[in-house]
Design a protein around this nucleic acid. Sequence first.
DNA 1: TTGGGTGATGGAACTGGTTTCATTTCTGTT
DNA 2: AACAGAAATGAAACCAGTTCCATCACCCAA
Lengths: 350, 350
Amino acid sequence: MKPVPSPKTIRDVARQAGVGVGTVSRVLNGGVNVSPKTRNRVLAVMRRLDFRPHAQARRILRRRSGMVCFLLSNRAFMHSFHARILQGVENCASALKQHVIYAVAQYDPTTPSSQIPLPPILQERGWVDGLIVAGFVYANFLRRIQGLHIPFVALGNNVLTTDGVGNFDLVSFDEFRGTAEATQYLIDQGHREIVFVGDTFFPWFRERYRGYAATMRLNKLVPAGLTARRKAAFPEYGEWAAARLLASETRATAVMAGNDEIAYGIWRAFLRSGVSVPDRMSLIGFDDREEARLMDPPLTTVRVHKEEIGDALMRLLLEKLHHAGPPYTRRILSTELVIRESVKSLRNSN
Amino acid sequence: MKPVPSPKTIRDVARQAGVGVGTVSRVLNGGVNVSPKTRNRVLAVMRRLDFRPHAQARRILRRRSGMVCFLLSNRAFMHSFHARILQGVENCASALKQHVIYAVAQYDPTTPSSQIPLPPILQERGWVDGLIVAGFVYANFLRRIQGLHIPFVALGNNVLTTDGVGNFDLVSFDEFRGTAEATQYLIDQGHREIVFVGDTFFPWFRERYRGYAATMRLNKLVPAGLTARRKAAFPEYGEWAAARLLASETRATAVMAGNDEIAYGIWRAFLRSGVSVPDRMSLIGFDDREEARLMDPPLTTVRVHKEEIGDALMRLLLEKLHHAGPPYTRRILSTELVIRESVKSLRNSN
DNA sequence: TTGGGTGATGGAACTGGTTTCATTTCTGTT
DNA sequence: AACAGAAATGAAACCAGTTCCATCACCCAA
């Protein structure tokens, strides 16, 4: 095995083909104003020398690196949700001949803005053309990102500040309508006492609660939520809520869970207490993670189109790159209620 | 908002500071042989102009881009397992001031090697210093990668060819010992009839089966496997196996599942048939995905240290970059049996 | 046959850094 | 005060491409 196949340059090709460097460059870039004879000769030499152009050098001149950074604001969050979004971003990027750099910013809401560590890639020029921000976005983080003067778009559903909102582009999905539709579905199935479960400290659960509550009131029903702040993982939160619900000898027949993980916790607690889903209790989740389909019974849930969100993020960013500056756009994707088997119809007729 | 903060170059700085470009460059790179007075003047100008060096330009000269590519060989596989490995890679990379580009290669085992599409990033020079390959690796894919002449390491557990193996570096984990230890644990708990479930078409299940079978024989027990080839998703495979097992009126008291997803399918089928885990049937999984902990009962399983694998991949790659060429190393990480509640002890005493 | 227009071509200048090298400046000794 | 040696410095060359521009060959019409 040859040690290093000593990289050939455009000048090597030019010399061997007996042409000027400019001609080789023209062949590389679509070959306008190059005679077919010359082009073929140059191409043949390129193949023979295994010439591959040097990307870095091109990018200097082009003033565009062809790279975007997918910045996740907290290491702990690379779960399937963000993984699927990254997948959508990559998918779209590769179709548009862009590349995705994956990076993580570790910070907490109290870190002074200027001290939030960022990968050097974002601090030097010329690395990335733009930035896709996902994960928790607190005010300090937002300021840090904005100070970079790199065009960016954010995944909007977990922006936890209202300060600079409106001053940047974001893609999100309609949490409000998601639970609104799901709640309406429960009501249509004859449910009257429906409980929402989810810690409304988090803005997304707040929004989902609002969608639920509005729909309840629209139907002259009274909203009831287990929405207390509790620093627990989601499945555990669900278990806690289920236990409280059962202890209160509730007359509720359905639970609207803030997300699938909470739904899972609720389901598990119900299972242990001998409360059958959906016979005794109907259950709806939110997100449609892979596991929702696999639960027993398969969970009816509000699907978030994760790949599409990734796609929208990438596209929006590229739009920004081409004609930068305000105005800023919000792109809100819709959700989809996927009906499986965790909801029982209480209607006798029909 | 200023339209574009017109990038300043090293020459702008030099002119404003009244020094030569060489001096500015020296200041940028640690400032050897620069008088403190000059350095300070240059630094002041840099700050004033908001000068940030242009990464691409540096890399040309340095002949190292500081980027590695995490290449996933199939879009369908960006699930939590690979996401966690990517996390480990990124974690290690950022500590070592490297950057990770995420890319996907879509191919199938029958695609001619030369026609496997790869992102342009891998076809041009100067983009990435090295490559981390994850996902299915068939012979055609391996050849394609090797033809790139970019140093690479592979996640070894799903290499599906033996052709070129030994001619590249890989990190893997000890599948054999994983199931061996788990099986021994079952035997120690008094189980005698233990069934392995997993499609041995896949090399990793084959290896896991071998670990199981060897341990059984070592204990003078006879191995029994449901290992037929079936083109089904893993949970469904588990369901199929569980159904067959129950139909056969087996005397088995424990199941060693090929992975957690299969274990989940088995568990679900058991649940539906009223077969209690662990009272009637003990169950062990493999991988330790997030969901294993959340099952009911929590699943005893063989943990694969995914972040550590990512870390090892990154480190091995960097070693390769510094002193390239053979010999090639295999780094096999060990697994860990995490004991939860899905296994019942059949021993009366103790 | 000559002239104008077009397409092809080579080469210089450029991009934004680093590195080398020759020259200048500083420091310490006799 | 003279001088060697080391440190500091500016300028030019370089890296691997792109872009611009002047030149040249060629074709067709007048």
